[in-house]
Computed example of a mutant assay.
Amino acid sequence: MEAIEKILGFKYSDSKKYDRLLELDCMLYTNLGTDSTKKEGQEVKTKSRKIYQAIRTLDTERWQLTAKQLGQSFIDAMDKK
């Protein structure tokens, strides 16, 4: 996904990149509606997984805290799908 690469390429701090990636993920899910097809839902899940993989590459204390809060099992489950 180009937007992920673009965000990671910016000369922002890791914290700001983290925020932008989560913002992007939020927008994807917000744009899904009751009229969305299953295919569109699957595409959003795939993009979301890529976003979280990109977040994982950012070595920040904030990500480590979030990973603990969300639970490592959730992240592992997302990677397996």
Rank of each mutant, 00 (worst) to 15 (best):
M1K: 07
E2D: 12
E2K: 04
E5K: 02
E5R: 05
I7L: 10
I7D: 02
G9I: 05
F10N: 11
F10A: 14
Y12P: 03
S13W: 00
D14V: 04
D14R: 02
D14W: 03
K16I: 15
D19W: 04
R20Y: 05
L21G: 11
L22Y: 02
L22Q: 03
E23A: 04
L24Y: 04
D25K: 04
C26R: 12
L28S: 03
Y29I: 14
T30S: 10
N31E: 13
L32K: 05
G33D: 08
G33H: 07
T34H: 07
D35H: 13
K38I: 10
E40F: 08
E40C: 11
E40I: 02
K45T: 05
K47Q: 11
S48R: 03
S48T: 08
S48W: 02
R49F: 10
R49G: 11
K50R: 15
I51E: 00
I51S: 00
I51Q: 00
Y52A: 04
Y52N: 07
Q53I: 15
Q53L: 12
I55K: 10
R56Y: 12
T57I: 07
T57V: 07
T57A: 04
L58A: 06
T60W: 00
T60V: 07
T60F: 01
E61G: 11
E61H: 06
R62P: 11
R62Q: 15
Q69Y: 02
Q69S: 07
Q69I: 06
G71C: 04
Q72M: 08
S73C: 04
S73Q: 06
D76W: 05
A77Q: 06
M78E: 12
K80V: 06
K80A: 10
K80G: 06
K81C: 14
